[in-house]
Structure formats: structure tokens, C-alpha cells
Design a binder for these strands. Structure first.
Length: 925
RNA sequence: GCAGGGGUUCCAGAGCUUGGUCAAAUGGGCAGGGCUUAGAACCCUGUGGCUUAGGCCUCCGCAGGUUCAAAUCCUGCCCCCUGCACCA
């Protein structure tokens, strides 16, 4: 049998598709189908994980083509933002870790990698690499439309989009705290930090306790507990300083002063080494009570302000530290929670037997108390007495800030976080920050309205979108640095990367024709006309508008499920804002990730499989099939060698069958035997079902049906029909077409073997219509044979006979039993079934046996089938299979009616009485 | 904390919407057999327990409930994963 050289086959057909311009799509008379997948970010080559979304999209595109649609699948590269800059910088710094990953995982020689210190160079290199990989995967992409998001023409398009948003009132301005690197003078995201840590911001409330000529500021997450303050803590080992900003003087730790400077640029240090003495007093701004200052070791000068207010009723650390000092009296209750008395902190500490403030269990106790109090607590003191803690907290915070009793301090709570440049990151409040106001209620309402009409696949994701739509608020849309498009209303800023990729699908429709125009020609009027039909346009613009209107709206958007909570929802928002409703997107499809050998792929584990090396090793079609057929769309699918080998083996089985069928010159028609009818029916059902499954992107299910299950059916068929009689021609033809969306290269190759060139290539074929119909009788008949075979095997196994059987006699149940069976099927109960059965004249003569039969059927009432064969039909079917069954057991095999058993002797007769409809009795000698 | 997803037989993973045909698909692993000089591949059989005639018992995170009947429906509980942004 022929060997399959995947690489040869792949390049052969890729070349033919190219020559044919099979995937260059232009408007024509056909109905269009326009789909896109989230474009890649080329700061590294792609791994098999990336292949999931693109393969899903491509399978869908190929399926739609086979439905006769004019399909457009374009691709471009997203280069906006800072990760590419960060990557180039790391290379310039000869980051060993990075170069090693490039070398070992992606096979990029060190020399080559080291050259990629210029961001544009880096982009060019990796985008070529990615494009090459996509070509090798056989994705049916119209590459003429490729662009980069830093292309001047695309910049003009994005500027247009932002001007539109501004005019609609969706661009706002304000201030915003961000994680910040003081050395780079830029916001930091996870890819800018050492170890790729994502800096998390937390918000402390700094409460001003009057102290000497200024304030001690205590940092807290729980401002509502201000009523329960008994004292204020400082750490005797910490270094405190007096600083001045906003015209006021504050005592804080030296570390806190550093952090505060990032927000308050007017901050000056008035006095270093401020000594705080135990027992000194300060004044609670809420009520003006004087409270003492005490030392405590649990206070960390790096957290917050380095000063902490003490609320021993509700904070285990505070209670412990006071107990350590022997001053745990005069505790003040602030709130109550079910299941606790006045002082939850004290109770928990005592219950958990926490020794002192340095006991690790103190942390646990704190979590326990905080969780309960935040969730179910109710205030028992103060202005908001009786209100839930959660609400009172916000109100008290707001009040105190308004009355200048407190201020806000943002901090990285999972710190210390270091920038790649080595500097410690802090928090900066960016003034003049620009936002897209996704919180706009009117806008949201329009989005909700359209979302309800969209097709969301898988359906499970709907709730997540709805949650996101409701939750979205102002989204910062400009940054100090990065590649991409300049922010049109502040040329010193760049548009942030999630904000420039929300309507680019519109750009693809005309991207390949814009080269003829100069960037400056693509002004506001240009896009107003081409994309919105507003204003006046020339002939060229008219042509572009037509093209745009042919493809838009987008029929299907594809991406990983992780983008639901930002990109995909932004995508809906922006379309709704900018375009008329008839051009709003129709469908979104999201998929899960790819696991490697059951685990998550990660750089640190080094278990990343690069896409191109996977293709080399396993073949494009095997990789394609693996990543989309391994799990349901929304679930993560696993990739591993065994899976790939299993697919490979089955491809070879089909290839052999095809070669054999061609050699035998099989006629393109189904055989007439029972086995043929059975196979035709089973296959016909699958073909008929496939279109719906493809439509819903139930690719795992399609794969299961037409790949694995069909091959299992073929195995039974071959066994059943015997050597030399098989004809699988029709099935194979249809099979090749049905798997072609998954395995386009192999499909072409197999199709050519089967059909030559007279019908053209697979890419020109339509989805097959089932050549055989579901045949209930054929399937029921064959099922009878299958279960008889199984039952016989069971019995043989059970009786542990050493010598093979000499003769097997089969007795098919009498027709009166079938009557009884039907009655039980309808009645489901013993008593009524009995009554009805005995009323029938044809049953009556068997009165003695009826009760037994009814009992049998009732017991198995769930397993009864709605339609029965007659005794005559059953005998006929089994006689047809007698030769086969005899061969299986290498013995004589006879099929008779139950009534004939008596002739064979008493033993036969007794056994035959056990026969049931669908379950003939088996007598083995 | 909020939101979403999930817990099934050695593993992965279907089934749950529409309760019965579910000891529970399919794939993998493992065991035995066949083929082979041997192995790989391939094919067959087995893989909860008991059982010398196709049977019985137990079982689908835990605990209850509804029903003639529950992996599937209802209630409560436990555990795991993901996201919560200015970052692609």
C-alpha cells in the first residue's frame, strides 16, 4: 500500500491552491460569507496553541465554501503597544532566558535572534515566520489584504475611528492610577516586569490622626472601623519621616514617602528620622478622641504608610498586639455579624489559639474575620448604624475624603514588583488620561439590544458577555509609549492596543486596494464616504464603498475565549457606535486553549511546541485535526504524540481503502447485501447530520462521527461481508469531501486518487448530499445480528467450554409473545398488561407462559423497543446471517422458529421457551 | 468577594437540555491472545464485583428529596479551574 509523504502532499496542494488563487476572494454574484480571526501579535513565533483559533476559523471557512458561499478570510498583524518594544529591548540587552527560549523552542539561531533589536525588524521577522506557518497549515487566507497596525494608512483609519467616537461623546478625560516605572517613566503591564508579574493595584485609605504640628496617617482597607480605634500602631524599627504636600505635614515611613511622591509631585521631606515614642497621643478625626501610640512588630513600613490604626474588636493583629502589651482592655465594637459576639477578632484568636502577633496563624485569623465581616456585617455605631458594612465602608470613605479627614493612596499589593529595567515599580496617577466611555448607559443599552440578536457560539459564553457588557466602564485608551497610531487629540500619546483593534475587520474589505492611494488621501471624508456613505465621493471611492458593502457586516468573528471580557465586547461596542445597525456583526465564536500532554504550555516548563515544528513532525492535517477535534469548542483540547499517531494510523486505513477501491474499479454505488444496507444507512445518517454540526462548529462531534465511528463501522462491515465483496466507493467519496475542511491537503490527494482530475479539485466541490438514506429496518436487522453474536459469545465465555461448539441452534420467539411485548410496552405495568394480554384470543392458548413473559418484559420495561419485527422477519434476517455467524463460531448454525424446537428434543424445546422478541434463544451443543 | 465553567468508571473524556435502551460512548493505558525470528505496526478479547446459559449486585463529588424509574430533575453542602482591565 502506498506510503503517505505528508510534506510532499502539503506543498503540492498549497502550490496548486496558490496557482489557482483559490483563496483570493472578490465580490461576485454569490452570497458572501465574511469571517475573521483575531490577528496575531508577532513578538514571537506561534505555537500549536495559536493554531486552535485559526484552524477552527479555517475549517469553518472551508465548510462555508462547500455550501457555495463566496468566503473571505483575511489576516493581518497586530503590532500596537509595548510588548514588541519590550521584546526588542530584552534582545538588545542579550537577555539569556529569552534567547534560550527562541533557540530551543522555536529553533531561531542565536545570531539571527540577536539581530532583532529594532522593533520593526522584529515585527518583520516574526510576522514572516507566522505567515509561513499559516501557509504551511493550509489556511485559506486571502493574503493580499495583509497589513500591520502601524501602517500609515491603517493609522488614518484608526484616527478616523477615534474622531468618530469623540464626536459621539464616547471619549472622556480624567485621572487614573496605574502601575508605574519611575525610571522608564511609563505605565507597566505584566510583560514589562521582571518575571512577568501582573501588578495588582489596591486602594488604601489614609486616615489623618492629628499629631503634633501635622498628622500621622494610618493606612487601612477598612475605613468603616474608624469608630473602633483604641490606639495607633507604629513599628519601632522603622524609619519615619515628616513630609509636606498639599500644604499639610504628615508623618509616614520613609518607604511610604517615596511612593507618595509619585502621586504628589510637590512632596518635600521636612524632617528625617522622626522618633515616635510609645504612649504619645494623637487625635482620631472621627469624634476627636485622643488615642495613644504603641509599638507593634507586625506593622510593615513598606505597606501603606507604615502606620496602622488599631481596632482590636475586629482585627486579630490589633487584638494580639494589644494583648502582647497587656493592654487589651476598652475594646470598642463597630459592627456585628451572625455567629459572633461583640469582639469577633478576640473570639477567633482564642478559638484558633494564636500565640502572638508573630504567629503565622494570625494571618489566617485575619482572613477569616475579614471575610465574614465584609460579607455579612452590619454597623452598630456611627452615622450609618444599621447598614451593611459593604455600603457603609464606601460612604464613610467618601465622607472622610470630602471632609479632608482622609486621602486615597494606591499601591501595588502583590509587590514588590520590579520593572525589567530593574527599578521598583510604584503607582502613579496619570492626569489627562483619555478614556473610551464604555460605561455610557445609552451605548450599553444599544449593545445589549444587538447582542441579544447575535449568534454566540458556544452558547455557554453568553452569560459572560452579558456580565462584561454590564460591568465595562471607562477604559483608558492612550499610553505614553508603544507602536501603533498616535492619539489624535494628544499627539504625544499613542492609542492603546486593545482600542485600535475593534473595527479593523472593516479595513480588510478594502485594504488590498488602498496601496494606490497616498496615506494623506485617506482623510476623514474618505472613510466617512467609503464606510458610512456620508458626504461626497469620487469614482474610486464609490468602487471601494461597493466592495465594503459587499462584505460587510462581518458574519463570524473568531478568537480564544479569553478575549470575551475585553476585545470581543469592545468589538461589539465599537461597531454599534460607529456603523448603522445593518452592518453590525452577526456572530462570535470562541474556543478553548490547547494543552500539551495534559498540561498548560508555559515558558518556564519549556513544554511549548512550536507550530512549524509540529507541522514538520506530524503533518499539517494531523495537527489541524488534533487541535480542533480533541475537545468541544469551548473546552481545552490536549495535544500529544499518541493522539497524533492515532489520527495518522486512521488516515492510512482510509488511504488503503481508497487505493484498494480504485484498484478493484469499484462501481460508485452501494451494494445490495444486508451489511451494505446497514452501512449505507449508518453513513447516510452521518452525512445528513454533518452540515448541522459544522454549522454549529461542533467539530469534535463531526470528527467523532465521520472519522472514528465511521472507521469502526467499516471494520464491522468488512468482517460481516467477507473477503472480496466489499464496495466502499460511495462512502469514501463522500468521506473525503466531509473531512476536507479538517484535512484539506489529504482530501485533495485522496480525491485525486479516487476521481482523477475530471471533477476538479476538492476546493471546487460542494458539501456532499447523502447518497443513502437512513434505513430503519436495515439497522434494526443488523442490530439483531450484532446482539446475537454478542450474546452467543457471552454464553460461551460463561460456560467456560473448552472445546468449540459443534452446533448452535437459534429459536425466534413466537408471534404471540410479540403481542404481549407490545402490550407491556404500552402499559409498562404487570397487572394491566396481564389483563389485556389474556383478553387476546391469540394469546390465550399460552396462558401458562404468559405470566412469565409479561414478568420478563416488565422487568426490562426500559429496554423495550417501540417497533418489532415479526417472527418471520426475524428468522429471515438471521438466516441471512447464518453463514457469517457459523463462520464466526466455526460450527453449524441453524435458525428456526420457536415452534419447531419440539422436533429437536426436550432440551431444545425448554430453551426455546426463553426466547423473546429481539432476543432469540440460543442453544449450544 | 463578584462572575463564569467544572467534579463521571485506571487516565482523558462523552452522556445531563428532552429521566428509562447506562456498568455508562470514544480514545488512551494496562493485561491476555493472534501475526512475527523478535519487536513495531496491525487485528481480536478483557479491563467495578460476583456468576459454568445471555443473570445478579454496587456505581457517576457529598447529603437529602421528587419519581414505578435519576449520572440525568430539585434543595443544601464540599472541592477544583478561569476572569475581574488599561495588559496583549
Amino acid at each position: 500500500m502506498g506510503e503517505m509523504d505528508y510534506q510532499l502532499i502539503e506543498s503540492k496542494w498549497q502550490k496548486k491552491w496558490r496557482e489557482k488563487k483559490a483563496y483570493e476572494s472578490n465580490p461576485d454574484k454569490r452570497e458572501k460569507f465574511y469571517l475573521t480571526a483575531a490577528f496575531p501579535y508577532p513578538n514571537s513565533p506561534q505555537h500549536i496553541g495559536h493554531a486552535r483559533t485559526y484552524t477552527t476559523t479555517d475549517v469553518y471557512a472551508r465548510f462555508k465554501r462547500m455550501q457555495g458561499k463566496n468566503v473571505l478570510l483575511p489576516m493581518a498583524f497586530h503590532v500596537t503597544g509595548t510588548p514588541i518594544l519590550a521584546m526588542a529591548k530584552r534582545i538588545a540587552e542579550k537577555d539569556e532566558e529569552l534567547l534560550k527560549i527562541f533557540e530551543t523552542i522555536y529553533g531561531i539561531p542565536r545570531g539571527k535572534a540577536a539581530e532583532l533589536t529594532d522593533p520593526k525588524e522584529l515585527v518583520t521577522y516574526f510576522s514572516k515566520e507566522i505567515e509561513q506557518g499559516m501557509q504551511e497549515m493550509g489556511f485559506s487566507i486571502d493574503w493580499r489584504r495583509k497589513f500591520y497596525t502601524f501602517d500609515p494608512r491603517f493609522n488614518k483609519f484608526i484616527e478616523w475611528q477615534f474622531r468618530k467616537l469623540k464626536r459621539l461623546g464616547f471619549i472622556t478625560k480624567g485621572s487614573h492610577p496605574v502601575p508605574w516605572c519611575p525610571r522608564d517613566n511609563n505605565a507597566v503591564g505584566s510583560h514589562d516586569t521582571k518575571g512577568d508579574v501582573d501588578p495588582e493595584l489596591g486602594e488604601y485609605v489614609l486616615i489623618k490622626f492629628k499629631y503634633k504640628d501635622g498628622f500621622l496617617v494610618a493606612a487601612t482597607f477598612r475605613p468603616e472601623t474608624i469608630y473602633g480605634v483604641t490606639n495607633v500602631w507604629f513599628n519601632p524599627k522603622a524609619n519615619y519621616v515628616k513630609v509636606k504636600f498639599n500644604g499639610e505635614k504628615f508623618v509616614v515611613s520613609a518607604e511610604a514617602a517615596e511612593k507618595l511622591k509619585m502621586r504628589h509631585s510637590d512632596l518635600t521631606v521636612e524632617e528625617k528620622n522622626v522618633k515616635i515614642a510609645s504612649g504619645e497621643e494623637c487625635e482620631n478625626p472621627m469624634g476627636g478622641k485622643k488615642v495613644p501610640l504603641y509599638p507593634a512588630s507586625f506593622v510593615d513600613s513598606k505597606n501603606g504608610s507604615g502606620i496602622v490604626m488599631s481596632v482590636p474588636a475586629h482585627a486579630p493583629y490589633d487584638y494580639l498586639a494589644l494583648r502582647d502589651l497587656g493592654k487589651a482592655q476598652g475594646i470598642i465594637q463597630v459592627l456585628k455579624i451572625e455567629g459572633f459576639g461583640e469582639f469577633p477578632a478576640k473570639e477567633v484568636v482564642e478559638k484558633m489559639q494564636v500565640k502572638d502577633q508573630n504567629d503565622p496563624k494570625a494571618e489566617e485569623a485575619t482572613k477569616e474575620v475579614y471575610r465574614k465581616e465584609a460579607h455579612g456585617g452590619t454597623m452598630v455605631v456611627g452615622k450609618y448604624k444599621g447598614e451593611p458594612v459593604l455600603e457603609a465602608k464606601e460612604k464613610i470613605k467618601g465622607d472622610m475624603i470630602a471632609e479632608k479627614k482622609a486621602l486615597i493612596m494606591n499601591e501595588i499589593i502583590n509587590g514588590p514588583v520590579f520593572c525589567r529595567c530593574g527599578a521598583l515599580c510604584g503607582v502613579k496617577t496619570v492626569e489627562d488620561q483619555w478614556f473610551i466611555d464604555y460605561g455610557n448607559e445609552e451605548w450599553k443599552e444599544k449593545v445589549r439590544g444587538h447582542f441579544a440578536k447575535m449568534s454566540i457560539i458556544p452558547k455557554k459564553a453568553i452569560a459572560e458577555y452579558e456580565y462584561t457588557i454590564n460591568w465595562l466602564k471607562e477604559k483608558a485608551c492612550a499610553r505614553a509609549s508603544g507602536l501603533g497610531t498616535k492619539f489624535p487629540f494628544d499627539e504625544k500619546k499613542m492609542i492603546e492596543s486593545l482600542s485600535d483593534s475593534t473595527i479593523y475587520m472593516a479595513y480588510y474589505t478594502i485594504a488590498h486596494k488602498l496601496a494606490e492611494l497616498k496615506p494623506e488621501e485617506l482623510d476623514e471624508k474618505f472613510f466617512d464616504y467609503v464606510l458610512l456613505g456620508e458626504g461626497k465621493g469620487n469614482a474610486k471611492m464609490d468602487a471601494l464603498r461597493k466592495e465594503f458593502l459587499y462584505w460587510y457586516p462581518l458574519d463570524s468573528r473568531h478568537s480564544g475565549a479569553d478575549l470575551i471580557h475585553n476585545h470581543l465586547t469592545f468589538f461589539i461596542f465599537n461597531h454599534v457606535a460607529i456603523f448603522p445597525h445593518e452592518l453590525w456583526p452577526r456572530q462570535i465564536v470562541t474556543n478553548g486553549f490547547v494543552l500539551m500532554d495534559g498540561g498548560k504550555m508555559s515558558k518556564s516548563l519549556g513544554n511549548i511546541l512550536s507550530l512549524r515544528s509540529a507541522v514538520k513532525k506530524f503533518g499539517a492535517d494531523v495537527v489541524r485535526f488534533s487541535v480542533v477535534s480533541g475537545a468541544e469548542l469551548g473546552a481545552d483540547s490536549d495535544f500529544n504524540q499518541t493522539l497524533a499517531e492515532g489520527i495518522d494510523a486512521r488516515i492510512k486505513i482510509i488511504n488503503d481503502l481508497i487505493e484498494q477501491s480504485v484498484k478493484n474499479k469499484d462501481k460508485a454505488e452501494w451494494g445490495k447485501s444486508d451489511a451494505d444496507k446497514w452501512l449505507a444507512s449508518r453513513w447516510g445518517k452521518r452525512v445528513a447530520h454533518a452540515e448541522e454540526l459544522f454549522e454549529q462548529l461542533q467539530l469534535r462531534e463531526v470528527a467523532q462521527e465521520i472519522f472514528y465511528n465511521t472507521i469502526n463501522d467499516i471494520r464491522w462491515y468488512q468482517k460481516r461481508i467477507g473477503n472480496g465483496k466489499q464496495n466502499l466507493r460511495k462512502l469514501l467519496e463522500e468521506w473525503v469531501l466531509l473531512v476536507s475542511p479538517f484535512m484539506p491537503h489529504l482530501a485533495e490527494e485522496l480525491w485525486e486518487k479516487l476521481e482523477g482530475t475530471k471533477k476538479g479539485m476538492v476546493v471546487e466541490q460542494k458539501l456532499p448530499k447523502a447518497s443513502a438514506k437512513y434505513d430503519e429496518n436495515a439497522e434494526r436487522a443488523e442490530q439483531l445480528v450484532i446482539s446475537l453474536l454478542e450474546d452467543t459469545e457471552n454464553i460461551l465465555k460463561m460456560i467456560k467450554r473448552t472445546e468449540p461448539p459443534k452446533k448452535i441452534s437459534i429459536y425466534c420467539a413466537s408471534d404471540w409473545k410479540r403481542k404481549v411485548y407490545e402490550i407491556v410496552y404500552a402499559e409498562k405495568r404487570f397487572d394491566t398488561s396481564m389483563k389485556k394480554a389474556m383478553a387476546l384470543p391469540e394469546v390465550k392458548p399460552y396462558a401458562k407462559m404468559v405470566a412469565k413473559a409479561v414478568e420478563q418484559y416488565v422487568k426490562n420495561v426500559a429496554g423495550l423497543s417501540s417497533k418489532l419485527m415479526s417472527q418471520k422477519e426475524e428468522v429471515k434476517v438471521l438466516e441471512g446471517a447464518a453463514e457469517f455467524l457459523g463462520k464466526e463460531f466455526s460450527c453449524e448454525f441453524s435458525v428456526m422458529k420457536e415452534e419447531d424446537a419440539a422436533k429437536m428434543g426436550e432440551a431444545h424445546k425448554k430453551k426455546a421457551e426463553f426466547s423473546q422478541p429481539n432476543k432469540p434463544s440460543i442453544f449450544i451443543e
